[in-house]
Amino acid sequence: MAKTIMTVDDSSSVRQMVGLTLKGAGYNVVEGVDGQDALNKLKANPVDMVITDLNMPNMDGITLIRELRALPAFKFTPIVMLTTESQANRKADGKSAGATGWIVKPFKPAQLLGVIKKVLG
């Protein structure tokens, strides 16, 4: 049974790039255009993993992570954040909100798949 991953980013090019990589590796992909959109969709249909950008309109990634962790269905779901930020504190914010890990943008498809393997199997 293929696992489903949601990718959340306000940039359609990033969603496309992530989506192509994931589909190529045999995962099902659903997309969210910002935190709020993702949260609405995820409440209706839980997934196996979430990959989210941090800076987004409506609801940012940190808030999304925090909201998701509060839902029983997402208490233990791997959530990986995409970050370009000058690291340390944003990573720490994300971790304390409940993120499982992070991927630094820009990244290569192989790196993305490596991280997915690490947290989702």
């Binding site: 233990f76 791997p78 409940g98 993120a99 393997k117």
Partner: peptide, 14 residues
């Protein structure tokens, strides 16, 4: 450690 979605077995696999 489980609370942030980590599955330690996958790290062993890695």
């Amino acid at each position: 450690i489980f609370a942030n979605g980590t599955n330690p077995i996958l790290l062993l696999d890695e």
